[in-house]
Design a protein around this nucleic acid. Structure first.
Length: 411
RNA sequence: GCAGGGAUAGUGAAGUGGUUAAACACGGCAGACUGUAAAUCUGUUGGCAUUCGCCUUCGGGGGUUCGAAUCCCUCUCCCUGCA
């Protein structure tokens, strides 16, 4: 019976970085790896062939979104997430825990605002009149952002939904508190997340027993570490969850790139070394990727490369550009000269500029291919540099080209 | 030729005596986006200065008025009827 495993192939020097392979019933993921964001069982604007051509090894979908539409039962009837979306390689699902945050305390504030400065009520986590999610120890009640209907999700129901959706790797249902919440709230929240993780594990194992009985492949479960920016809480969380029988670990929370070395390190040096670590929702820019890997991250997922692509912000080795800028209207070079992606091999900046200005949907596809390729190939190159011991050279070269002189803050 | 209607910033279009450098939309310029309520959102968009501010605008010209895109005269052009 094919099932989940993780093998470390190379540890890099005296850092926490490692290169390895995650094996799933749908194939292997060479790590470190960037996992493409496929929230609603689609990487927005890309066909599976295009996802593959951007170099992606795996896609991460979202339980909350698929529960609402089309319904986890429909995904199951389709034969599971991979068959439903015609993606034959490994898949992840996120639990819906992040929506507790984004539809709850972060509602109407913007993640960034919460992350930076927590305007107004610093006590946080207090229900505002129009937020769509509320947390109790039992679980979370949501209002559907689609039709307003009342829904609930518990650790058990999240696992049941994830097993219906049947990705290879699931995330435990967690609470992602605003990082500047009061410590007392963060402690309550962390206790709740830990209790939920145990309930997820129990239900997950029951559901896997049913898979065995039906001769179906086993599915894997990652526990999700929280603890905001508090060293003791992050270590407590990593230690607690690390002692349980999870297949791997997600690291949750809202980060700034500068925080990764510290916060991620607290977690990864506490977690068992032989299990894969996934940094949830980070990877919008090269610093995230380098620092994540250097401090022990094996996989990333991040929606920013695809979202920003749709909005005209494209990554290049010399920094981010906005392809809609006037100066690109007559630039008949590729977005990036040496880029090997499909878009850069076949199209000019001027053409993509035109597609955006004309509001043509091909703009989203071509831009997304480029950004995904950029991020994925960067992580792949980081992997190679770990294996042949050129990581630091590569890092310095890459980050100095991307950020200019300010790259030193990431070294 | 006669009668009526109209000409407002890049475009369309409000405004019909003072709070109008002029709503709104589009277009333009730029910015943001990190487990996706996002093909979204924000700023800006007469000129100069860019802190106070100053200057020139509502088809052209001339008036009335303390004050005009708004009222009057006239010219130009456009539209609709009737000849």
């Amino acid at each position: 019976m094919a099932s989940f495993s993780f093998k470390i192939e190379k540890r890099f020097g005296d850092t926490l970085a490692r290169a390895g392979v995650i094996s799933t019933p749908h194939g292997d993921i060479k790590t470190p790896a960037f996992i493409a964001g496929g929230t609603k069982a689609t990487v927005k604007a890309l066909t599976p062939e295009q996802i593959l051509s951007s170099g992606a090894q795996s896609v991460l979908a979202n339980t909350y979104h698929l529960m609402l539409r089309p319904g986890a039962d429909i995904v199951q009837q389709a034969g599971g997430l991979g068959k439903f979306m015609n993606w034959q390689l490994p898949t992840f699902t996120d639990s819906g825990g992040f929506q507790v945050f984004s539809l709850g305390v972060a509602y109407d504030k913007g993640i960034d605002a919460v992350s930076h400065s927590q305007k107004g009520d610093k006590k946080n986590a207090k229900a505002t009149s129009n937020q769509l999610a509320k947390v109790t120890d039992q679980g979370v009640t949501f209002k559907s952002h689609i039709d307003g209907s009342s829904l609930s999700m518990t650790p058990e129901s999240s696992m049941e939904l994830q097993h219906l959706i049947a990705a290879d790797i699931h995330m435990a249902f967690d609470e992602c508190p605003a990082p500047l919440s009061e410590r007392s709230y963060l402690i309550d929240s962390l206790t709740r997340t830990h209790n939920w993780a145990l309930r997820c594990l129990t239900r997950h194992q029951e559901l896997n027993d049913e898979h065995v009985a039906r001769n179906e492949p086993l599915q894997a479960l990652y526990g999700v570490v929280q603890g905001a920016r508090h060293e003791d809480l992050r270590k407590q969380s990593a230690s607690f969850l690390g002692s349980k029988d999870f297949d791997g670990y997600g690291i949750g929370g809202v980060f700034e790139p500068q925080e990764i070395p510290e916060v991620v390190k607290w977690v990864t040096e506490t977690l068992p070394e032989n299990k894969p670590r996934h940094l949830l929702g980070m990877g919008a820019q090269p610093a995230d990727l380098f620092l994540g890997v250097e401090y022990g991250i094996d996989t990333f997922d991040c929606v920013a490369p695809t979202r920003q692509a749709r909005n005209g912000a494209l990554y290049t080795k010399n920094g981010r550009i906005n392809i809609t800028n006037a100066k690109f209207a007559t630039d008949f070079n590729p977005i990036e000269r040496d880029c090997e992606c499909y878009t850069c091999r076949h199209y000019t900046a001027a053409y993509i500029n035109h597609l955006f200005r004309a509001d043509e949907i091909l703009s989203a596809t071509l831009a997304t291919i480029h950004n995904e390729y950029f991020v994925i190939s960067t992580v792949d190159a980081i992997r190679n540099s770990l294996i042949d011991d050129t990581y630091y050279d590569y890092k310095q070269k890459f980050l100095s080209a991307y950020y200019g002189d300010s790259y030193k803050q990431f070294m």
